[in-house]
Amino acid sequence: MAEKHSRGAPSTPRKGGATAPPREGERIAKLLARAGVASRREVERMIGEGRIALNGAVLDTPATVLPNLKGVTVDGNPVARAEAARLFCFHKPSGLITAERDPRGRPTIYNALRNALPKDTPRLMPVGRLDLNTEGLLLLTNDGELKRAMELPASGIPRTYRARAHGDITQPQLEELIEGITIEGVRYGPIDAHLERRTGRNQWIELTLTEGKNREVRRVLEHLGLQVSRLLRTAYGPFTLGDLPRGAAAEIKQADVERFRKQLARESRA
């Protein structure tokens, strides 16, 4: 049985005898997230479960600071060096759960991805989620830090959806959503909504938002008296669904990924 081990980089003295937090290296949760093992939060949970060790000693704190992942194992397996951040577009069909497994046995995106991705693709994590019955653009990455940055509401990354809905609505009513709306105590931020076309009481509506709260588009439109029969995400930041076939996946060019990462970093410092 491996011994419990709590480790951090040496502290450096401060004036007056106090110590400053270690500066060399990064927290293990961040390193493992960047290596695509799991998100920071999931890594912290794994540490609590005793699944992560350093040189055979089980770690008991996510505050562990390391210069690299040398000697780190997860479930007894050495952690491979972090690859460059990669990003994939996936056209999620309706009827798939955005999760690795479902307790109820429903099919997940990973069932479809087995056939949609090349065999040598690293472990990928979804950027955000799409509901069971929502289809369209789902981004996936091997980099936990990129995933986290893209999901944070503070990043303000726009997501665009097209909804087919039944009922009566006017463009002026939709324009009021730009001020945000509160539904049953939940505040939804600004939504830029446009009535695309109408046939009788059926219409297509395009909506762009930056928060992406759970079932946000459906709840807002239902609050306005509409019944949503189809919901499709068409864009996430600068990345668009385009003509990617349903159930297919495609890798985004590395140069575009790096350009986007740099833009995110600049905006986070602003």
Score class of each variant (00 low, 15 high):
163 A>G: 11
176 E>R: 08
176 E>F: 03
206 E>N: 10
198 R>C: 09
167 G>W: 00
177 L>R: 02
183 I>K: 10
192 D>A: 04
162 R>E: 08
198 R>F: 01
186 V>C: 06
164 R>Y: 07
152 L>K: 11
146 L>Y: 09
166 H>F: 12
189 G>F: 12
170 T>V: 09
167 G>R: 02
173 Q>P: 13
206 E>Y: 04
145 E>P: 02
186 V>L: 07
179 E>L: 10
146 L>Q: 01
161 Y>R: 10
179 E>G: 03
144 G>S: 05
175 E>L: 15
145 E>V: 05
190 P>S: 15
145 E>D: 15
162 R>Q: 15
146 L>C: 09
192 D>T: 13
191 I>T: 12
171 Q>C: 05
172 P>G: 02
165 A>F: 04
184 E>Y: 13
196 E>F: 07
183 I>N: 05
206 E>A: 13
194 H>W: 09
183 I>V: 14
143 D>F: 11
169 I>S: 00
204 W>I: 04
157 I>P: 05
190 P>M: 07
168 D>F: 01
183 I>F: 04
154 A>R: 15
150 M>F: 07
169 I>L: 04
186 V>N: 01
149 A>E: 13
149 A>S: 14
172 P>F: 00
159 R>P: 02
150 M>E: 03
165 A>N: 06
180 G>P: 02
150 M>H: 10
155 S>E: 12
156 G>R: 11
178 I>Q: 07
186 V>P: 05
177 L>E: 08
155 S>K: 10
205 I>C: 07
193 A>I: 13
194 H>V: 02
160 T>Y: 01
177 L>A: 08
184 E>F: 03
157 I>S: 00
156 G>M: 04
174 L>F: 06
157 I>W: 14
201 R>K: 11
166 H>C: 08
156 G>W: 02
189 G>E: 15
188 Y>L: 09
171 Q>P: 03
170 T>S: 15
156 G>L: 08
178 I>K: 15
161 Y>V: 00
191 I>W: 07
188 Y>T: 01
199 T>P: 04
178 I>L: 09
163 A>I: 00
144 G>Q: 08
168 D>V: 12
182 T>G: 01
204 W>P: 10
160 T>F: 06
153 P>G: 14
189 G>V: 03
163 A>D: 01
165 A>Y: 01
195 L>V: 12
199 T>D: 08
181 I>E: 06
148 R>N: 15
202 N>K: 14
158 P>V: 08
166 H>M: 07
186 V>T: 14
185 G>E: 01
186 V>E: 11
176 E>N: 07
145 E>A: 09
163 A>N: 02
159 R>S: 13
197 R>H: 11
155 S>M: 12
198 R>K: 13
207 L>F: 09
181 I>D: 01
162 R>P: 04
170 T>Y: 00
191 I>S: 11
168 D>M: 04
195 L>C: 09
193 A>F: 13
163 A>W: 01
184 E>N: 13
195 L>D: 03
151 E>L: 02
149 A>P: 13
179 E>R: 14
200 G>L: 03
159 R>G: 04
150 M>L: 14
153 P>W: 04
171 Q>S: 06
163 A>F: 05
189 G>R: 09
153 P>N: 14
195 L>Q: 00
143 D>Q: 05
188 Y>E: 00
198 R>N: 03
185 G>R: 06
158 P>Y: 05
195 L>Y: 00
177 L>H: 09
197 R>P: 02
162 R>V: 14
157 I>M: 15
